[in-house]
Amino acid sequence: MAKYALSINGKTMSVEADADTPLLWVLRDNLNLVGTKFGCGIAQCGACTVHLNGEAIRSCVLPISAVGTGKVLTIEGLSEKGNHPLQKAWEELDVSQCGYCQAGQIMAASALLKSNPKPTDQQIDESITNICRCGTQVRIRKAIHLAAKQSKSN
């Protein structure tokens, strides 16, 4: 066990964990930030997507010892009032079915919109590689376009 001072959602949080513990389990088990989900453990499904220094990463394969002073953003910190344009678009278009993968989808989409505020369908195809078993992809795509439109007009 070692001590780590992590920067999560703008706050410094200290945890004690084995060096090889993935960030996912530190978030969920040590810090009770359970919005980040476990789906595969091998960076395939994207349910565990968070931002590290503004980029979408899969927290299930990132050991805590590799996080260092990097700024971690989770779904809980995406917006103060749960009103990020993507969160609003997701609700407006009633995207979710079971809802389990959606936090990861939103984190992947928010990283995309940061680097590309108005993505095309093809760019969405290329950058949103998360799995949704319920089949909400059509609505996810529409919600990303809607959020892009609304962010622009803000």
Partner: peptide, 21 residues
């Protein structure tokens, strides 16, 4: 009607079995 849990889902609130503590 939008799913009654939509806001809880999009904000990552504990809702699922895996979130039980």
């Amino acid at each position: 009607m939008t799913d009654v849990d939509a806001h809880l889902i999009t904000t990552g609130k504990p809702l699922f079995g895996i979130d039980t503590r």
